[in-house]
Design a protein around this nucleic acid. Structure first.
Lengths: 151, 151
DNA sequence: CTGTATCCGAAATGATACTG
DNA sequence: CAGTATCATTTCGGATACAG
């Protein structure tokens, strides 16, 4: 069986598709599964699979520690509200550190904690891939739209 | 300068933070930038940085071609509406192929196109990472919440 | 089975004003 | 500067009914 065939196999491995919470006996640690609605990892995934969260992590990874206003400028289109909210979530989950310098006017710097840096390493290729293949995807759209426009 | 220092550098590379659309002269192709609000790649990124889209691609990559109902069962919690909608978007962008078998009852199978497979390769580690670090992130939350609960 | 169409409440987000 | 609070609006998403 080739690697390709394995990828195409009809049989799912792991708990994919099963109910989470209906796990093994007592004492047994149930495997986490992002595909399971009730699994805690699904909630975490939903939080991370977010436009702003990902862009923030990518920006911090690519440009190093930044203050609030720098982040807002770097990620154009994000509102103060969304930026604050996303940063808080990331901070709460231990991915980002918030440091306040008690000056006037106040300066607040955000940077990645080890956990956030790990994740950012996986996110960076995603951003690059998107930029490099946006052309193809837009072309595919035009084709699709044309083929489905009363074709 | 070490790799670590480069990652921490305060200087952004590329167009990060600049306005997209204010590019070079005529004939010049402007670089795409997911950080730019008006860049087409940002819109594509927003579409891909979506819970359902990512889970669909991950499921198709991990379990191979699946019919509509299989996908819905595998990704627990997704409604018909959201599944249809996300699949259409992925199909339209050339990531997923939809094949209808004109039987009764009808059978519709979805599988990854080369473009989608490329992306799925980058997504898989993200899912695994989330499952493996959900524990740490939940722990960080408790700590954060406790420290901020009238601390 | 695999959708589509519609309605409707919930949640996300933007705009604005205000604060330390 | 770096938020918070509030309100208005939009969008999302689930439920339901219906169709090929």
């Amino acid at each position: 069986m080739t690697t390709e065939e394995v990828a195409q196999a009809q049989v799912c491995v792991g708990r994919h598709g099963q109910e989470w919470g209906s796990g093994q006996g007592k004492g047994e640690e149930q495997e986490l599964d992002v595909f399971a609605q009730l699994c805690p990892s699904r909630a975490m995934f939903a939080e991370l699979a977010d436009k702003w969260s990902m862009l923030i992590l990518m920006s911090l990874a690519g440009c190093g520690p930044q203050r609030f206003s720098e982040l807002q400028r770097g990620i154009s289109g994000v509102s103060r509200k969304m930026l604050t909210q996303s940063l808080r979530t990331l901070e709460r989950s231990g991915l980002v550190r918030r440091t306040v310098f008690p000056e006037t006017p106040p300066r607040v710097v955000y940077d990645l904690l080890p956990l956030g840096r790990e994740l950012a390493v996986l996110l960076a290729p995603l951003g690059r891939w998107t930029e490099q293949h946006t052309g193809q995807m837009l072309a595919a759209r035009e084709e699709f739209d044309q083929a489905h426009a009363e074709g």
